[in-house]
């Protein structure tokens, strides 16, 4: 949306421990991911991934893209790479419509999660998400929608903030223009 929202999003997401970068295009994003991801990488074949040839881009950059059923990728795969539906500037949150089980496995199991966000989908705040969130539920089909704000965390031992409890230890948000401005697809 506005530059203002983009700046606010970057600041909010960084404050909760996410890495946030603005990247020129998807091949450069793939190169960044190749430099950070280690081991088996889960890349769900979503409509956007297919349209942008994400698996091929990542493989070409040297990422170890996992080709079999994600449930066979072990208990802790190295990385997951996904697109997002939209983001929220006030809290630095990315939103993924994750009804497709592979999106859930790619964002819950790995050590690192890389998420590609089109800056055009950054909403000003959580309240602005009420409309697309309601739109997701227009038909009665089962739905799983995930808000993700920074990496997994806990403060359950002596109230000390500790990153990487049960979900990814690292969240990398890559802002790339021109992915899709449609909030309903990822």
């Amino acid at each position: 949306m506005t530059e203002n929202s983009i700046d606010r999003f970057i600041e909010s997401a960084k404050r909760v421990g996410a890495e946030v970068l603005r990247i020129e295009n998807l091949p450069e994003a793939a190169a960044y991911i190749a430099g950070k991801a280690q081991g088996t990488t889960l890349v769900p074949e979503t409509p956007l991934a297919v349209r942008h040839g994400l698996r091929a881009l990542l493989a070409a950059a040297g990422v170890d893209v996992f080709g079999k059923s994600f449930r066979e990728a072990g208990h802790v795969p190295g990385a997951g790479v996904t697109f997002s539906n939209f983001a929220m500037a006030d809290t630095g949150t990315v939103v993924l419509e994750s009804t497709d089980e592979n999106i859930r496995l790619a964002t819950t199991l790995p050590e690192k999660h890389f998420v590609l966000v089109d800056p055009a989908t950054i909403l000003s705040d959580n309240l602005a998400a009420a409309a697309p969130m309601t739109a997701f539920h227009r038909d009665p089909a089962p739905k799983f929608i995930a808000y993700i704000t920074g990496p997994s965390r806990t403060a359950d031992i002596e109230r000390v903030l500790t990153i990487g409890c049960h979900g990814p230890r690292e969240l990398h948000i890559l802002l790339v223009d021109g992915i899709s401005s449609d909030l309903m697809e990822n």
Binding site: V16, D90, T91, Y147, I148, P151, R153
Partner: peptide
């Protein structure tokens, strides 16, 4: 400001 995860199922 928000927890790491809010999950809508």
């Amino acid at each position: 400001l928000l927890t790491s995860y809010v999950t809508w199922i």
